[in-house]
Simulated assay, not measured.
Amino acid sequence: MPPSLLFATDLTARGDRPLDRAVSLAKEMHCDVKLLHVIDKKAAAAQADPAEVSEKIRVDLPEQAAGVDIIVEKGSPPQTIARIAEETGSDLIVTGVARHTSLGDVTLGTAVDYIVRRAPVPVLVVKKRPLRPYRTLVVATDFSAYSLGAVNAAAALFPEAEIHLVHAYAVPYSGWLKSDEVEKEVREEAEEYMEKFLADPGFSEEVRARLHPHIGYGHIEEVIYRALRENDADLLVLGTHGRSGFAQATIGSNAQSMLTGSPTDVLMVRKQK
Score class of each variant (00 low, 15 high):
218 G>D: 08
105 D>P: 00
157 L>R: 03
122 P>G: 03
117 R>W: 05
217 Y>F: 10
75 G>K: 04
129 R>P: 07
88 T>M: 09
149 G>D: 11
82 A>I: 03
106 V>S: 05
131 L>W: 03
137 L>S: 07
211 L>M: 05
214 H>A: 13
145 A>L: 13
200 D>S: 15
213 P>W: 07
216 G>P: 10
207 V>W: 12
127 K>T: 11
100 H>F: 12
164 H>A: 06
200 D>V: 00
147 S>Y: 07
206 E>P: 00
218 G>S: 08
125 V>R: 04
211 L>T: 06
157 L>N: 06
94 V>G: 11
213 P>S: 08
204 S>G: 15
190 A>T: 13
165 L>F: 06
185 E>H: 02
129 R>A: 14
167 H>S: 09
152 N>K: 14
136 T>N: 15
106 V>P: 02
86 E>N: 12
174 S>Q: 15
176 W>C: 01
197 F>H: 03
114 Y>T: 15
150 A>I: 12
99 R>A: 13
133 P>A: 11
115 I>E: 03
153 A>T: 15
170 A>F: 03
132 R>F: 12
174 S>V: 11
168 A>R: 11
133 P>F: 04
98 A>P: 00
151 V>S: 07
83 R>C: 00
90 S>E: 05
154 A>Q: 10
139 V>S: 07
198 L>Q: 09
115 I>G: 03
82 A>Q: 09
114 Y>I: 03
153 A>K: 13
106 V>K: 12
129 R>S: 13
214 H>K: 08
217 Y>A: 04
108 L>R: 06
185 E>W: 01
93 I>E: 04
134 Y>K: 10
185 E>L: 11
127 K>D: 10
